[in-house]
Structures are given as structure tokens and as C-alpha cells.
């Protein structure tokens, strides 16, 4: 059904979509046509009541839960996407998370380093798949030393570390991610559990367990 142009005029006037000349002409029509004036008044009243009773912003019930559910959904989707990639790479995603620095003091030294290393069996060389430094001023690079049978991390841009500061490193041989509980277990060279980490409801890393570190 095609709307007559005069009806368009009425709502264009009501919604302030007319230019000055059009508005003047329509006002003259309103003055001369009581029926049109009554219709316009009723529509104007309706519009005012709609605006008063349909707030543009409403408090979201259980707002915190609303947010955390979104974070959980995002984390679950990322986990699903990562399931297709290499198993060893999955746990490294933790180090891309912006909240990693809050895990705990147990891994504080690792946070300072900003990286962890994954040795990919069966090759002898370590492979750094990903690095993350909480500070953008810190550049991370690495190389494998066959003599030391170790991967060396180079951190450029760090402030001086006091000589008596203990730096803790973990030798990670492999990792396993349990999708059901969204937890990743990191194993050392003797197959011992070194760390177990998970994401909390807000998608932040949470340390579930840690073995004694090697100082």
C-alpha cells in the first residue's frame, strides 16, 4: 500500500525532517485544517510518550555476569580455533594474553623474561613459537645454543636487574590442553608437571598449580 504524500508530510513535520520553507507551508495547512491539526497533535503526543517510556539505555540485569559470559564465549571460540593448530603451540597463547602479568609470584621471573620456550620432540633444538613482553619497550629475541643445550633469550630494553635477583626458568618438554576443563598442563624434561594454568571467567590466566622452581 502506497502512503499518500500528505501522510509523509505529517510525519516529516513531526520528526523535524522538513526544511524551513516546507515547515512554514505545513504549519499554514495545520492552521487551516482542524482535522489535520488534531491528527498532528495526537501523533506528537504519542511520540513524546514513546520517548519518555522507551529509555535509550537500560541497566543490564546481572551486568558482571553478562560481561564474563562474553569473555568465556570468546575464550571458548579461540580454544576451538586453536584446536586445529599444533598441540605444542596451544599453551603459548597464554603469553599473548594481556593479563598474564598477574598470574602469581611463582612465575614472576618468567613474566620478566616474558617468554617461555617449548622444546619440540623429537628434534634436539628448541623452537620458540611465540613471545610476549608485558612492556612494549622490551624486545624479545632468542637463539638455540647447541653447546649449552639450551635456548638463550635476549631481552632488550629491560631495566637493570639487581644482581641478587633470582631469575627462574622452566624447561618445558611438552604440554597438554584439556578442552573439557580449559586447563593446560606443562611438563618438564622428566615428564613431571611444572605448571597447570587455566583461564578464569574473565579470560585471564589463572595458575592452578606449580612445582618447585629451579632457581
Amino acid at each position: 500500500m502506497k502512503t499518500p504524500p500528505e501522510d509523509h508530510d505529517l510525519i516529516r513535520w513531526l520528526d523535524g525532517e522538513m526544511n524551513a520553507a516546507e515547515r512554514e507551508r505545513f504549519t499554514s495547512r495545520l492552521d487551516a485544517d482542524p482535522a489535520l491539526k488534531a491528527e498532528a497533535d495526537l501523533m506528537q503526543r504519542l511520540s513524546t510518550d514513546l520517548r519518555a517510556n522507551l529509555p535509550a539505555e537500560m541497566p543490564v540485569p546481572f551486568g558482571d555476569f553478562f560481561n564474563s559470559q562474553i569473555q568465556v564465549r570468546i575464550a571458548q571460540e579461540e580454544l576451538s580455533e586453536n584446536a586445529g593448530s599444533t598441540k605444542q603451540a596451544s599453551w603459548l597463547d597464554w603469553f599473548r594474553l594481556p593479563g598474564f602479568a598477574t598470574i602469581s609470584t611463582v612465575v614472576a621471573a618468567v613474566i620478566v623474561a616474558g617468554v617461555m620456550i617449548l622444546q619440540q620432540p623429537p628434534t634436539a633444538a628448541s623452537v620458540v613459537l611465540s613471545t610476549y613482553a608485558p612492556s612494549q619497550g622490551v624486545q624479545v629475541s632468542s637463539y638455540h645454543s647447541t653447546d649449552a643445550h639450551a635456548t638463550v633469550l635476549m631481552l632488550t630494553g629491560l631495566e637493570d636487574v639487581p644482581a641478587d635477583r633470582k631469575i627462574v626458568g622452566y624447561h618445558i618438554e611438552r604440554s597438554e590442553t584439556d578442552q573439557a576443563v580449559a586447563a593446560t598442563t606443562l611438563y618438564g624434561e622428566r615428564g613431571e608437571v611444572v605448571l597447570v594454568v587455566a583461564k578464569d571467567a574473565r579470560n585471564q590466566p589463572r595458575l592452578l598449580a606449580a612445582a618447585n622452581s629451579r632457581g
Binding site: 522507551l54 529509555p55 535509550a56 539505555e57 537500560m58 541497566p59 543490564v60 540485569p61 551486568g63 553478562f66 560481561n67 562474553i70 569473555q71 570468546i74 575464550a75 599473548r96 594474553l97 594481556p98 593479563g99 574473565r202 579470560n203
Partner: peptide, 29 residues
């Protein structure tokens, strides 16, 4: 760049307006 905390801030900022729209459209909380 993958920062979910930044997204959380945006959710906080606009959830009330988005929820109001969906509520007015659906009329079911």
C-alpha cells in the same frame, strides 16, 4: 590486536544501550 580486556571496556560502555534496543524490540528480558 587480541586484547579482550579492551573489549570488556567497550562492552561496559555500550551494553546498556544495546540491551535497551534488544529489549524494546523483543519485549522479553
Amino acid at each position: 590486536a587480541g586484547d579482550t580486556r579492551a573489549f570488556d571496556v567497550l562492552v561496559n560502555r555500550y551494553r546498556g544501550r544495546i540491551y535497551a534496543m534488544t529489549y524494546h524490540m523483543i519485549q522479553n528480558e
